[in-house]
Design a binder for these strands. Structure first.
Lengths: 333, 333
DNA sequence: TTGTATGCGTTATCAT
DNA sequence: ATGATAACGCATACAA
């Protein structure tokens, strides 16, 4: 494990000064060097297997080509595709991702932010945003993905939750459903909130009554929370719009406990189209969200922001798609 | 965006020299400073929100407290829990994870390794190992997780694949199954290979005939590859041991195509116990692998290795657990 | 076009 | 126990 060559080694071999080597090695400044010597230097670098020491470069330039990616928990199936999309977009620009999980703990998130900033992270992509969060005080380039803040002063990439809910309500209405329940997600997250508001909107738009007795709020976007929230819904409902797929699976459980069956008695719709929803019993009708693309776009937005930090905070909203499967049928009661 | 405080700012505030502040801030060298001044310095650091500049530290110490984690694809459900375990173990030691996906492409893996090494990565955790891979030539600390090499000269954390297969065969044998098929995974990966070898072993141990006609090799650990491989299995089999859960789901499909039903006609067993196997139809019997723990152990092993690189290459094998669900019943034919 | 000089923030070595 | 100093490798403003 002998130590790697430095730029000085390259310079010596090419019989130039280190500064000249630096200029030749950096594509940005290569034209400040005669083509002949530049070639000689590149040659030397290759023969030595030279790779720049990024610590030294970071120290000097204050940039690292590393982005911090902070999510609640990688084991939640929505995040892997998002992270994968982020990584692919970052890589195109020569960036890498430093990953951290918070489990929804704000303190842990702050620790992570601090630790990552100490590592010269050029910017952050956060999938942990809460509606009430405010922009980072020190102006480090930051992009939200999947969730956004109410204030809207942080760039974000989200999906068109409202359109998804409207499409769902329209489909159910066309199938004769009128007593439609909503098991909403947590209201402090934009995803839970937007879908809930859109539910009220869409019901009204279709002339349907959104009786509060048919609305429940799950404590979290989990199967258990979904079951607990759905367990005491009134018996006369014919459909449930769940805050997301996990909540929808919880609704499956609650219906079973109550001796009802999906889809015969009650149709169920989820949100996300996470993996293996198509092979559940019954296969789940759901609003597909382009998680990979959201991650990809978020990373591009971050890179944009890193190169021009003062540009206005763009907000990208990607389209969704309603996927009809076996969990939805015509209303029978 | 004012610049973050440096150790000099802390030192000035505490009215000491930067060198003293450095000693006080580093737990390793704290005892070289009087307790009183150390406290004063810590106080000052906290009040300024000081975080050490890791680029400078790396440049000086040649270490980064960053580990490279390279996996095939985060969207494969086995990897998120592994990565999460890695991250939790790394965090305990003040390390962070730089993540990269290869899609199984060796060239991309090499690019990633190079790029990460240029970023002063202290070591690597690879979930991409192939049986034929050899140890990295330059002696960078490296640990394999989930898969291992034949040579065994790289430390690894894997699960007891053989025990899982033996338990599975025993269960099936006790339920009266004799014509048991195996849809194996890729044989260039230790997981696919070990399970296949264990299958032959276990069948023999139970006095059962492992007719090659009842063995198939899937081209990949995917649902599609599993279906394609299982589609032409002989009709007289009563059980299938699949190389992993995704292959098992592919077997479900193949059985359906062939007009057979699981579990009535054929019992199916998978490997991994990935999320949502319990809610498939039928719920999948599978060998649960402690992915999170494997990741956690792998990270610990890497940290060990970073602190004493010349220690012998440990190989950790974690126990597995057979989870019986609806996809397995007594042999009826 | 190329060389010289300097500093990024930290820590190790020396001196006090 | 603390301070002074140098050096890690690189990039840049300035000089030649």
């Amino acid at each position: 494990m002998k130590k790697p060559p430095t730029i000085k080694d390259v310079a010596d071999l090419a019989k130039v000064h280190a500064a000249t080597a630096s200029r030749a090695l950096n594509p940005q400044t290569r034209d400040k060097v005669s083509a002949r010597t530049a070639n000689r230097i590149l040659e030397a670098a290759k023969s030595l297997g030279y790779a720049p020491n990024s610590a030294a470069r970071s120290l000097r330039t204050k940039t690292s080509s590393v982005a911090g990616v902070i999510i609640p928990d990688l084991r939640n199936p929505v995040f892997p595709p998002i992270v994968r999309g982020i990584e692919d977009a970052l890589r195109e620009a020569g960036y890498m991702a430093l990953l951290g999980n918070t489990d929804g703990d704000v303190e842990r998130e702050n620790e992570l932010l601090l630790a990552m900033r100490g590592r010269q992270t050029d910017g952050f992509i956060l999938a942990t945003g809460r509606r009430a969060d405010s922009a980072p005080p020190d102006g480090v380039p930051t992009v939200l993905v999947n969730r956004r803040t109410d204030a809207g002063d942080i760039p974000s990439v989200t999906s068109d939750n409202a359109a998804g809910v409207h499409a769902t309500v329209r489909m159910l209405a066309e199938l004769g459903h009128t007593r439609i329940a909503h098991v909403a997600g947590p209201q402090d997250l934009s995803t839970g909130w937007e879908r809930y508001r859109a539910f009220l909107d869409a019901m009204e738009a279709h002339g349907l009554d959104s009786d509060p007795a048919r609305i429940r709020f799950a404590a979290a976007f989990t199967e258990d929370a979904g079951r607990d929230a759905a367990i005491d819904l009134p018996d006369d409902i014919t459909a449930i719009i769940a805050g997301n797929d996990l909540i929808a699976l919880g609704c499956y459980q609650a219906l079973e406990v109550n001796g009802l069956s999906c889809p015969t008695d009650v149709s169920v719709v989820g949100f996300n189209d996470m993996p293996f929803t198509s092979t559940q019993r019954p296969s789940l009708t759901t609003v597909r969200i382009p998680h990979y693309d959201m991650g990809f776009e978020a990373a591009r937005l971050l890179l944009e922001r890193i190169s021009s930090p003062s540009a206005p905070a763009k907000r990208v909203v990607l389209p969704v798609e309603l996927i009809r499967r076996d969990s939805v049928v015509r209303a029978s009661r």
